[in-house]
Nucleic acid binder design. Structure first.
Lengths: 204, 204
DNA sequence: TATATTTTGTACCATTTTGCATAAAACTCT
DNA sequence: AGAGTTTTATGCAAAATGGTACAAAATATA
């Protein structure tokens, strides 16, 4: 018997929206990391009380993993849009890095970096699953950069002799560095200069 | 009146060596971060009891700052040695990255990344002083890369037309990325490939 | 309206954590 | 040897934290 999604469930209706709560938990985790975030922080961020949190997401560790995976899924879509835009390579790369910058900056303008790199990796030694999920997502981005440069080469935007994988590595390392620098509070002029310089090296 | 360093102090002698204790505290902080490390962890790592820790380093926050600054001072010396070696650029860059890899790998072979990037930056939003210290140290490394490439250009190892600052940025972003990837458990073959590829792009 | 069901809100418990108080220990100086 | 000084060791108090029990609230169904 399949549960009809439109059936209203039996008991008291939930006061929270699960996807919204996930995004709300992202904030304290992003700012303070797993260990630095208390259940009270999560409770305050989501406006849910503790038992509801447990019922919805399990313990703190499970909640963090789900927030991490939700972040990856959400940002993947943003990156894909930038990577698949049918524009010249220079403009394409710029869109990818603009996407990164937008993700890595919090709404108040303060940089906080990539959630994976800035907030999740600290626990990669304690929790192997975190390391695996993050590494897999990083590799997915790596492949996207390589694909993008290969397409550019096929279109004649890059020399047929160019070492595409090596240039992709240059593009990849910038992306990881953007996270590090924005979390460290690097001024945006420097960040943009890094981007311009790297695109210059890649596109010649 | 200047205190004679050879004078034995008056009371019960310390059972710990301050610099050694600093390095011991580095381990749990590196692995678990500031929030994830308890005073019991520090006590166990240093074999000092709590009151001695307080007397020697102040509270946990002050201890972390001192560990961070000690790490920066120690690794600075290692990097300087690599940067100032009188060898061809390719070899010089390789030595710098070999230094980084050695620092970023723990003794049991598991990668843990740069202490600043992997362990300190998570608290950069909470503690502005951490952000400032880390950013300053990153900039110092940035300048070292630029200087090294400038020297190579003067020696004719790089084209007079080459955009040295742009190439330095490529070198810099690899270094930051090495930390990220090693913390994420990237396999060393991939890490070394990143290095080879980046050196290839810089040195042509 | 009564009952079953699910969520919410309050309160609570056990553990961990930070920080400190106090006395014993180990040393120097007189 | 005795007094003075500094560190160590034990232990404790207050607060924070993770997790849960339980009754009240809100809904669908009979």
């Amino acid at each position: 018997m399949v549960q009809n999604i439109s059936d209203k469930p039996r008991g008291r209706p939930r006061a929270y929206d699960r996807p919204t709560a996930l995004k709300s938990m992202r904030e304290p985790f992003w700012e303070k990391g797993f260990s630095g975030t208390s259940l009270d922080d999560l409770s305050a961020a989501t406006a849910m009380n503790r038992p509801s949190l447990y019922n919805a997401f399990g313990d703190k560790s499970a909640a963090f993993m789900e927030v991490l995976e939700d972040y990856i899924a959400e940002t993947r879509a943003l990156y894909v849009a930038a990577f698949t835009a049918d524009v010249p390579l220079r403009e394409g790369l710029r869109r990818v890095y603009d996407t990164a910058i937008q993700i890595y900056a919090s709404e108040d303008g303060k940089g906080r970096g990539c959630f994976m790199i800035s907030a999740a990796l600290i626990d990669s030694l304690r929790d192997r699953e975190i390391a695996e999920v993050v590494l897999k997502a990083l590799h997915e981005l790596d492949r996207a950069f390589r694909r993008r440069l290969k397409i550019a080469q096929q279109k004649g935007e890059l020399s047929p002799n160019a070492d595409i994988d090596a240039l992709a590595t240059v593009a990849i390392t910038l992306n990881n560095t953007l996270s590090v620098r924005m979390r460290a509070g690097e001024d945006m002029a420097t960040v943009r200069k890094f981007i311009d310089q790297t695109i210059g090296v890649i596109c010649g």
